[in-house]
Design a protein around this nucleic acid. Structure first.
Length: 267
DNA sequence: AACAATCACAACCGCGTGGGG
DNA sequence: TCCCCACGCGGTTGTGATTGT
């Protein structure tokens, strides 16, 4: 949907307008908030001369007009962050959005519904099922990390290396028969930590009771996200994502691994 | 080229919460 | 304590764009 486009479906219910915002309305809202600030949305709507509800004004501002809104596709880093945080917090979109500067809860929610839930559907899984959570952790998240690494490698000539990993993170293809456990073990579900630049604190420290040293640290500096993948001892178990573990869950198969792989382009 | 199906995302809706009177 | 209001959150819907047939 293009912004600022007048729409024949626009509705005026009494004195309240609904539907897509016009450029004129956007300008009114921006000008008013620039002068008077946010808040008191119902009053703001009236005072600004907008025939909109306060709710509508607030939503338009927060999700679209606010200056620090970041537009464009989510980066692999951001996608990884969303997957990780959602696995922790569920549909707490606002809370998740707090850790993705410039991204709104609405945007994250839409991403989840259109991309992630689609994956679940195609795999005949419930998006909130443990099986799908495992699928995300064991297939998609490592692949995102791989993407991040590749992007980092591609840009390393012009900028400092942002991601540290001593070896290829995953085998090029990860069918169930070809899993390279030694390289795959570097990512484990229960041990990912995120850091914020503002506070330098661990945002969601998850104690990995079984694999305490298997960690990907994610932190932000300026406008860039950084990943710090710590090596883990060779003796660490790989049960989180091993074929044995998956078999225990009763959902993995060669076919499914292939199917997951074929869906890779959708991400 | 035309139509249908699907995607992406802006916008709306209902509900819960908290503060003030 | 109750009521009202503002606000914020999560779920859902609507619609233009894109892709497939």
């Amino acid at each position: 949907m293009k912004p600022f486009q007048a729409n024949k479906e626009e509705v005026e219910d009494g004195d309240v307008r609904r539907g897509p915002w016009t450029l004129e309305e956007d300008n009114l809202l921006i000008q008013y908030i620039t002068r008077h600030g946010e808040g008191r949305w119902n009053l703001l709507a009236k005072s600004a001369g907008l025939k909109r509800t306060g709710k509508s004004c607030r939503l338009r501002w927060l999700n679209y007009l606010k200056p620090d809104i970041k537009r464009g596709n989510l980066t692999p880093q951001e996608q990884l962050m969303i997957l990780e945080l959602h696995s922790k917090w569920g549909n707490r979109w606002s809370k998740i959005a707090q850790h993705l500067p410039g991204r709104t809860d609405n945007e994250i929610k839409n991403y989840w519904r259109t991309r992630v839930q689609k994956q679940a559907k195609q795999l005949n899984m419930e998006s909130n099922s443990q099986s799908f959570v495992d699928a995300i952790r064991c297939f998609y998240m490592p692949r995102l990390v791989q993407k991040i690494e590749q992007a980092s490698a591609a840009s390393s000539s012009s900028s400092p290396l942002e991601i540290t990993a001593s070896e290829p993170y995953l085998p090029a293809r990860m069918g169930i028969d070809s899993i390279d456990h030694q390289s795959y073990k570097n990512y484990s579900s229960s041990s990912t930590s995120f850091y914020s630049s503002e506070s330098s604190e661990v945002l969601n420290p998850v104690e990995a009771s079984n694999h305490p040293s298997n960690v990907i640290n994610v932190y932000k500096s300026q406008d860039n996200w950084y990943y710090d993948m710590q090596e883990i001892p060779a003796t660490s178990a790989t049960e989180q994502c091993s074929d044995v573990h998956m078999a225990d869950h009763g959902w993995i198969s060669n076919d499914m691994a292939d199917e997951m792989w074929n869906l890779d382009g959708l991400w």
